[in-house]
């Protein structure tokens, strides 16, 4: 029985799942391909439209989904550690609102080139999160102050986005589908921006797991051990923001992966929150986020839902339901 909970088994299962879904992504699309064909074309580009689509559309779309999911999950985990609260979600830092506003600004005022959109999103997210941190610094980042400051900052930037949409109605139309989140039309241009940010932030996060682990202890204890809690909180929060900002700038404000993935993993590993080493939890959470997002995107592609269900909708519905199920258990496990 213990084998099922073994981290390596879980990691292997998740990775296998990701590979399967990836292959599924490569196969599915308007230009029908069988799996064998897709595999062939993946390695031998024969210049046909099908090969083109495989390399330029399906593959980067899937990769974007994988990396975005991993980024959001990791971001959520970091927030949960920093606020020491299992109900953390990347959007709590205000980063989603800020990223949305950045994108809205560029789409309205400038040309919608990928590099301007993504960098504006990242910048906007970081600015918003910085404001949140500045507002909450007195509370040492773990209080409800931070949570509510983040939400207030989000409201501000979303209001600013609404103002833009109302004053320039074409932006309202362009931002419709962007805001619901999805991976249609996201290709190598987006991925080129995404992967360096995610990999860097992810690696940095892995490097500091020991310090982050300390943050789960009571502040007094941690400081007694010589840990500068304020500093590490800030670093952790900064990484969380960068990850989330990059993800949102590419895929739109997809909610909940960040909240849900860490919990799914904790449940899978079946340990007390404090006893799971972060060096294990982190990579697994990233894998979990990746597979969830990839799965949602695959469902969006595969299910005959017609016009109306980009990945973002499915993620919201799934995340919402999962939250409700998990919330009771999380609440009862949380020491008050």
């Amino acid at each position: 029985m213990n084998d099922l909970r073994h981290p390596l088994v879980i990691a292997a299962t998740l990775s296998a799942g990701i590979v399967v879904l990836l292959l599924g992504h490569l196969q599915i699309g308007a230009l029908h391909t069988s799996l064998a064909e897709a595999w062939q074309l993946l390695w031998n580009d024969d210049g046909s439209n099908t090969a083109f689509v495989l390399h330029e559309v399906r593959l980067p779309r899937a990769l974007n989904a994988v990396f975005t999911g991993a980024a959001l999950a990791l971001s959520g985990l970091l927030i949960q550690i920093i606020t020491r609260n299992p109900l953390g979600d990347p959007g709590l830092t205000g980063v989603t609102g800020g990223a949305t506003f950045g994108v809205a600004l560029v789409i309205t005022l400038l040309q919608p080139a990928t590099w301007t959109v993504v960098s504006a999103g990242v910048l906007g997210g970081c600015v918003a999160a910085t404001i949140t941190f500045t507002l909450a610094r007195g509370g040492g980042f773990r209080d409800i102050q931070m949570v509510l400051s983040g939400v207030a900052v989000s409201i501000f930037f979303l209001a600013a986005t609404s103002a833009l949409m109302i004053l320039e109605r074409s932006s309202m139309q362009s931002l419709y589908y962007w805001m619901i989140g999805g991976f249609s039309g996201k290709g190598w241009a987006e991925f080129a921006w995404l992967w360096p940010m995610i990999v860097t932030a992810g690696l940095l996060a892995l490097m500091i797991t020991r310090m982050l682990q300390m943050l789960l202890l009571e502040d007094a204890v941690a400081r007694g051990l010589g840990v500068r809690t304020g500093l590490w909180r800030l670093i952790g929060a900064g990484l969380s923001v960068l990850l989330a900002a990059a993800a949102v700038a590419v895929a739109g404000p997809i909610a909940f992966i960040g909240f849900v993935a860490p919990h799914i993993m904790r449940k899978a590993l079946d340990g007390d929150r404090k006893s799971i080493p972060l060096s294990i939890l982190m990579p697994l959470t990233a894998l979990c986020g990746a597979i969830l997002t990839l799965g949602a995107d695959f469902a969006a592609l595969a299910l005959p839902l017609g016009n109306r269900a980009p990945a973002g909708v499915l993620v919201t519905l799934f995340g919402g339901m999962t939250f409700l199920v998990l919330a009771r258990q999380v609440m009862s496990r949380q020491s008050s």
Binding site: D89, L92, L148, V151, A255, T316, A327
Partner: peptide, 12 residues
């Protein structure tokens, strides 16, 4: 708990 639940529910 009410606050945090409220915020999350609100976001959902």
């Amino acid at each position: 708990r009410m606050t945090l639940t409220g915020v999350i529910i609100g976001a959902i």
